[in-house]
Nucleic acid binder design. Structure first.
Lengths: 218, 218
DNA sequence: TAGATTGTTAATCGATTAACAATC
DNA sequence: TAGATTGTTAATCGATTAACAATC
């Protein structure tokens, strides 16, 4: 189960979450013509400790950094993109073409992250049959069948809370291996299925909690 | 800086994130007329350990649970909502009325979480001046001025990556204390400002990483 | 060479889980 | 009473940070 990169560097869950931030910044630097970066300079930008950046970089970098100068920007970008699977494309279906669903369908950025939404589903007979941002929308009854026939590994759930578990079950019946869940509910799934929750209520909870503490302490 | 609830129970960041999930489920149970729950039954639903649930509940619950029976559903709901600040309302502004911005503006659910978006801003002169989901949209130049005059504590950033830092600076100039950032960039802010990132690239990174491991190990 | 920066092992910190006493 | 469940202190696990040797 452990995850190793070159030799035996382990990339923690937290480290994986930091990668897209590094990547975004490194690409910006590359765009400005910068070819070498050091861990301390990156750390300063993100307000991370330089030890953390050094460790993260050494975990993903295929070529070692050079003492005194640092790492090659382009190589870091390439290595991180490989680690994150951005060089290959995973196909996904999206269920629930409401406001949020439409926003995700319209967001072209996902293809840079190795995700391509190929089909969408909606309960509403009006919406099903239409095409949104170039993606065909089908009736929800077809979820399992289509997923299985197209061998889709990822399902995105943007339906209301009450429908989420049903949709989740249909996706799993269709052979989906991972679910990106935007509904603010816990989904019950078999052990071999991965659920990644994008729960705005949970983020908001943190935000207002910190805010309250801040106000109290001032 | 430590955060204590009744007597000296500390609520960890992770525990705060779990609260909205508990809350959603407890409300569902309450709707079904269930009045008492035990930690083990909740744990079974979420696939958490019962020790974790017990600890989380005892950290937020103002009245103790009763051995052998459990906790009163309604009291737990009330206590959690209090802890998360859902009983008071924080005003927020949203900057960037694109697809995602519109989706957030239209989502009525936030009011249940103690957040009310009162004003929106957009760069586009067409969009500014309009009203979306009942919220007035103003030109971006007015961000600082309006936030300060309305004494807004929270800013939501849904602009493209390239504009995010500028908008962030304007919000802070307007006296905003916390920022909910949907742009996939690190924002540089003074120490006393809280940034809560909602980075879909980061979630996706985790998703595809796990997926890849799963496929490799099968 | 001297000094900045890398890479790695050990120490610390935070969060989860185990163990167990208290109690309805 | 016996047994399920709570509440809490101690042990473990994972992630971050400290310390330090290696090197360009």
């Amino acid at each position: 189960m452990e995850e190793h990169n070159r030799e035996n560097h382990i990339l923690s869950t937290q480290a994986i979450k930091r990668m897209p931030y590094y990547l975004q910044y490194l690409k910006k630097l590359a765009g400005e013509g910068i070819e070498i970066v050091s861990a301390p300079s990156i750390a300063a930008h993100f307000n991370f400790t330089e030890i953390q950046v050094r460790k993260d970089f050494s975990a993903v970098s295929t070529t070692k950094g050079k003492p005194k100068s640092g790492f090659t920007v382009k190589e870091l970008i390439y290595d991180m993109e490989s680690i994150l699977g951005y060089h290959s494309v995973n196909q996904a279906v999206l269920v629930g073409v409401g406001q949020l669903g439409r926003a995700l369908l319209s967001y072209r950025g996902f293809e840079n992250y190795g995700l391509k939404i190929v089909v969408a589903f909606d309960q509403d007979p009006e919406t099903a049959g239409s095409k949104i941002a170039g993606v065909n929308v089908f009736a929800s009854e077809k979820i399992s069948d289509l997923c299985r026939r197209m061998n889709i590994p990822i399902g995105i759930i943007t339906v209301p809370e009450t429908a989420a578990q049903t949709v989740c079950d249909q996706l799993i019946a269709g052979g989906v291996k991972a679910i990106w869940n935007f509904a603010p509910v816990h989904l019950s799934v078999p052990q071999n299925i991965l659920v990644q929750n994008e729960n705005m209520a949970a983020s908001l909870a943190l935000l207002s909690k910190h805010l309250e503490e801040k106000i109290v302490s001032e």
